[in-house]
Write a protein that binds this DNA or RNA. Structure first.
Lengths: 307, 307
DNA sequence: CTGTTAGCGCATTCAT
DNA sequence: ATGAATGCGCTAACAG
């Protein structure tokens, strides 16, 4: 265009206060520039920072992120996602909160979707979001401190992340058992992420026949610590415990919780980047910054009766 | 319409798989059916359940809730809100995360907005969302247990809720001072909602010249408890402490935290109901269910040296 | 009560 | 390099 024309245009824009109309654009192009984050009706613990990071990435890519709260089982959420995509309201869906095992049924029209903490094709990305390797590190570290019998209080097994941690727990125990005399699992108790589940796991146990607990998260760990105290056991004097999440309160509790810090923002960013890459038919760039980090604090120490 | 026509129509809908097109609807009517929740760039503690409840209410009212993360000072967020409303992208804006004191500048076109935890006209709704009366109840209860000198570790004073609690703290102390010999404030320390701020408030104090702490929230309270322990003081033996929020970890900590439970979902619901009422030009229904509730647990007890 | 019609503001194609 | 013309799918207003 001629510079003169471009200037004339700019003037007109200024004079009339012109702004492109999203609705007309959408109608004409057939692309809504909307992506939808679907949250289960029962959300409680899902971190806002993850959601916010996803929204931020969406915004930077020119998309608007809508939040839809859908109650009921995961099949209903899948249904809703299919509707959103088929109706053209939304170009892509991000499933948050939990990751149903069965995956997502077909029939998604032209849209794309990503299940948070679970990447479907070729399982790429699992290494980022559902990474459970810190569990292995925790067990190794505790073994060095003399611990031999480990209890795992797991999260609900329909969460990919909870499943990954449980599997890593069992695999790591099995691996070390070959090398280290007497190292074994004292069992896996499946809880529901709640402090109560950690409390119950310890309180209802006949005998405390372990010296270390790998808890599903810091909240569960807190429940377990309390139950141990009520049985007259000290942390870490008698039992060591490792949580997950690095909650602020865990840093200041007594004892402060050893835990796995998780970069929530990085998780949200990665998930949305993946969705947007899918929408554009590009390859998602794999961030190589680890999103988890094991932190040793006061709740872990030498196993009792260790020379 | 004739039942015959209605049937003929239904058949056609089924046959063609007709679904109304949102974009066309928006273009034609000029109403986007979108409301936007604006989150500051630095969100950390804002509860997802509040956001989810707001989204749920929006959905039920036929609106789509979008999330926009806007970094920078509150003026920038206000600017962005103005753009969203002026461009017609969004019909209403809900400011979340913090509530800048200065309020929101004019120039909002035809849109409506609601600042979370702060209702502007006639100050209705403040009673619901920024209600600080539990602080008064806590002080009264502690006074009955013999406490006379109270410290308040407050939240940042650009949060309406933090300001309301501070003011209620001072007012309640003044009120009781008239009746009860020796009852007084040991001071207000303004923090930033962090555990560190609670820790510092106690750790940096020359002398522990109080027997009760009203903390901005449970996280702050946790920091304060830790600092007290490090000074060799027991909770509640030497100092009683009350938090705010009823975090799950606080229920299982030792000592478990006395606190003010807040119905996060109710807060999100109320805020969005208000926004939607504004959009429709109706009066918002005032829910009369209280959103806060004082809970006494182990972190509070009789003042030391009380007969 | 039903059938017809005219734009909403844009992107795209075809003429200049 | 610019201008003019055609729908996208709907709603509202009107005609039958």
């Amino acid at each position: 265009m001629k510079p003169a024309t471009i200037e004339r245009l700019r003037e007109a824009v200024d004079a009339l206060g012109y702004r492109p109309d999203f609705a007309a654009q959408t109608l004409r192009t057939g692309r809504s520039s909307v992506v939808t984050a679907i949250l289960p009706g029962s959300v409680t613990g899902f971190p806002t920072s993850t959601l916010a990071a996803a929204a931020e990435v969406a915004g930077e890519a020119g998309y608007h992120m809508e939040v839809a709260v859908v109650a009921g089982p995961s099949t209903v959420r899948a249904q809703r996602a299919a509707e959103l995509l088929a109706s053209g309201r939304s170009e892509g869906v991000l499933f948050l909160g939990d990751s149903p095992d069965g995956g997502v049924p077909a029939g998604y029209g032209s849209g794309a979707f990503v299940v948070f903490d679970q990447f479907d094709d070729k399982l790429r990305g699992v290494g980022q979001l559902a990474d459970a390797t810190p569990v292995a590190d925790a067990i190794s570290g505790l073994a060095e401190m003399g611990h031999r019998r480990f209890l795992h209080v797991a999260g609900p097994q329909d969460f990919v992340s909870a499943r990954a941690r449980r599997e890593t727990f069992l695999a790591t125990i099995a691996e070390h058992a070959a090398d280290i005399e007497g190292l074994e699992s004292a069992g896996v108790i499946v809880g529901d992420w709640s402090a109560q589940s950690g409390y119950d796991a310890v309180a209802q146990r006949q005998e405390i026949d372990f010296t270390a607990i790998i808890a599903a998260n810091d909240v569960v760990a807190t429940g377990a610590v309390r139950a141990l105290a009520e049985r007259g056991l000290r942390v870490p004097g008698d039992v060591s415990i490792v949580g997950w999440e690095d909650r602020e309160m865990g840093r200041f509790m007594s004892p402060s919780l050893s835990t796995v810090a998780v970069d929530r923002r990085a998780q949200g960013r990665a998930a949305m980047l993946r969705l947007i890459a899918l929408l554009r038919g590009e390859e998602a760039e794999q961030a190589d910054v680890p999103v988890t980090r094991l932190i040793w604090r006061e709740s872990t120490g030498r196993a009792p009766k260790f020379p």
